[in-house]
Write a protein that binds this DNA or RNA. Structure first.
Length: 295
DNA sequence: AAGATGCACAACCGCATTGTG
DNA sequence: ACACAATGCGGTTGTGCATCT
């Protein structure tokens, strides 16, 4: 089907935004809200396409944007979330108040990816690089090993979810895992405890859920109400309704087959236990890993 | 001092998804 | 159910600045 372009190409300005354009856009949105992005440029008197306006607003002009370098905690969070969510930058960004998907994507591509490579971890798979990789640390360093365990847990959980989706009365064609599953998990009580990298969590890394469910199998998250409402105050952009409804894992989640229980239970255990002692000290070792040249 | 190179970040492009009539 | 518009998202590119040779 012939897809109409998002805007007429003729006469529309491209490239970097000027301060006066920014001002026009800010003033207009402050007065009227963005409404329809497509009609906004015309109404505001900008020679830009709506898409460009939306991008400029969401990535740069929004008042709740946090500018400046990422903190260590933010970087840790990005890495952990990336291990869970992969390149789903918008989902990752929704967990970091004031940060945009674009910003996080850039951070990953320019800093974190290289840093992981330097420590011998494949940034795509979060597994240790086995051969030929630029490794300066022993590959068996705790951080590396844990990364691998973590990724292993992720893959196992994903596989289980694929199986599990068959039990969700899904049509046979939609065996694809719910893409927001891990985000929901992250936003759940499980994720909450998981996020507590510092403070009291250090005394006992295992989450309350983990402790409470240590004797349960596979369905340890059954009945956990997962509130996936935006945690980040800064995520002003309304996400699609897919992630806004509270999810209750019903019993069907725990109805996976017995043979998958062992591995998936291990996976879940790893999920709940990572990161033991918050072992991402490599991030703090800025002097050692700041630049690829030092690998 | 000047050109080459690398890096960081903003912006664009095109596909996917969602909403609506 | 379908077509199409609108929007969201992730990959990629362009640009300006800093550093190197």
């Amino acid at each position: 089907m012939g897809r109409t372009p998002c805007c007429e190409r003729k006469g529309l300005k491209k490239g970097p935004w000027g301060p006066e354009e920014d001002e026009i856009l800010i003033n207009y949105i402050n007065k009227h809200g963005h409404g329809s992005w497509r009609s906004l440029p015309k109404l505001a008197g900008l020679r830009r396409c709506g898409k460009s306006c939306r991008l400029r607003w969401t990535n740069y002009l929004r008042p709740d944007i946090k500018r400046g370098p990422f903190t260590l905690d933010e970087e840790k969070l990005v890495i952990q979330l990336h291990a869970i969510l992969g390149n789903r930058w918008a989902a990752i960004a929704s967990q970091l108040p004031g940060r945009t998907d674009n910003e996080i994507k850039n951070l990953w591509n320019t800093h974190l990816k290289k840093r992981l490579l330097c420590m011998g971890v494949d940034p795509l798979t979060h597994e240790p690089v086995t051969s030929g990789g630029p490794t300066t640390r022993p590959r068996s360093s705790p951080a590396t090993r844990h990364m691998a365990q973590w990724e292993s847990a992720r893959l196992e959980a994903e596989a289980r979810l694929s199986k599990g989706s068959l039990f969700f009365n899904s049509p046979p064609t939609s065996v694809k895992p719910d893409p927001d599953f891990f985000l929901r998990l992250w936003n759940s009580e499980v994720g909450e405890s998981f996020r507590k990298l510092n403070g009291e969590a250090k005394t006992d890394c295992r989450s309350p859920i983990s402790q409470a469910s240590s004797s349960t199998k596979c369905g340890s998250v059954s009945g956990v109400t997962v509130d996936v409402g935006p945690i980040a105050a800064g995520s002003s952009t309304p996400k699609s309704s897919r992630t806004e409804d509270p999810i209750m894992f019903d019993a069907s989640f725990s109805s996976c087959s017995n043979e998958s229980e062992d591995s998936s239970d291990t996976a879940l255990q790893l999920l709940l236990d990572f990161p033991i002692n918050n072992d991402m000290s490599f991030l703090e070792d800025v002097d050692t890993y700041a630049t690829p040249l030092q690998c």
